[in-house]
Write a protein that binds this DNA or RNA. Structure first.
Lengths: 105, 105
DNA sequence: ATGACATTTCGATATTTCGCGAAATGTAGT
DNA sequence: ACTACATTTCGCGAAATATCGAAATGTCAT
């Protein structure tokens, strides 16, 4: 995930996706449903201002998905993207915790 | 910083440095003194088990220093390394905060 | 079915990055 | 000054990465 966030384009994508809320609802069987989110094309427009080609954004989104940073869901003709909040929370926790044993120095 | 943490070797270095406390003391004029910490050679030994050459570790430490992730200080013949806790805290804060505007979706 | 649209895959290319080993630099002690 | 040691710099090759554009895939609407 750090590697994923390490690329400037992906960090911008990440930042953009965070400004769009990740709507979630519980289904009948208690399963989680993501309701909506930006599409690949929308990410491309908003993040790079069409500076980058769709296929490039698609590539980065795939990387981020494989890293577990985001979730991508099919919505008819589109693919909608959302930040994986649990994963990000874990990452924040890792950075936030203090690993130094007491009295180490 | 994300890019820095994205490399496996550097993440191991980071993790190792965090287990060694960053001792700090106030000097006579209120200036901050880092007291001690692992040397480059020690990092090389502990992190890679001598799998990697010193120059390689030096390269990574430089990257991490330029990224603002660690601080390196001259201590006579040695260079001692410590995590930049403020920077890491900021990073954790960035990941931890919720950027989605209320009622976005 | 056909056309329009969204996205992904593929191939090619340019750039970056990592790693090693040798040489250079710098410091401490004798 | 000389030696021993710690670290950095440099040159280079190998591998990974980012980007583009074209072609392929998949979906919706007519």
């Amino acid at each position: 995930m750090f590697k994923s966030l390490g690329d400037p384009t992906r960090l911008r994508i990440f930042s953009f996706l965070r400004t769009r809320c990740c709507a979630v609802a519980l289904g009948d069987q208690g399963n989680v449903h993501t309701l909506q989110g930006p599409t690949v094309g929308e990410v491309c427009c908003q993040v790079t201002g069409l500076e980058k080609i769709n296929s490039t954004i698609s590539f980065h989104l795939k990387e981020m998905r494989l890293a577990g940073l985001i979730e991508v869901e099919k919505r008819g003709k589109f693919m909608v993207c959302n930040v994986n909040r649990d994963a990000v929370a874990k990452l924040a926790k890792y950075l936030g915790e203090d690993e130094a044993p007491t009295g180490c120095c």
